[in-house]
Amino acid sequence: MNRSELTFIERLYIFEALKGILLTSRHFFWNLFLHTTHLFGLLKNKSAAVTVQYPDEIRPYAPRLRTRHHLVPRADGSPRCVACMLCETVCPAKCIYIIAGEHPDPNVEKVAKRFDLDLGKCVYCGFCVEVCPEDAIRMDTQIMNIAAYSREEMLLDINELLRPGSRKQS
């Protein structure tokens, strides 16, 4: 990459810093002015900058947004997931780990005994939701804050997936 040499004025630094402060202050006072006039119903046609005070304030997300996964439960609380492993097969990040077991009802037959999803690897592609023949996995929890202090905490188990947010945060 070609960088132009700094001029003497630029190298003095002080003028450049002042230029920056000036720009920030101009936006600050201009938006302060606009927000105040909006309060009095004036200058409504001019829009002012919006800042969301995340995480105290959360913007409504579009319902179709792909957020953290959850497993849909049946009426009795057991997962609707029948451990067909299609999501595990299609997942490009290979971050779903399922172990199947027997369901007492012969019309259901199969159920996931273990269902682990490693958010640390997930690329949020939504293929798992798309492929599921039972509509058992969805990405509709609207949970976006998936940060954690360790890799282990990024691994969601079947309980956490069935009841998102139920796991105690450490």
Partner: peptide
């Protein structure tokens, strides 16, 4: 159409 739970699938 049990394919999701069918071992033959």
């Amino acid at each position: 159409l049990d394919c999701p739970v069918c071992d033959q699938s």
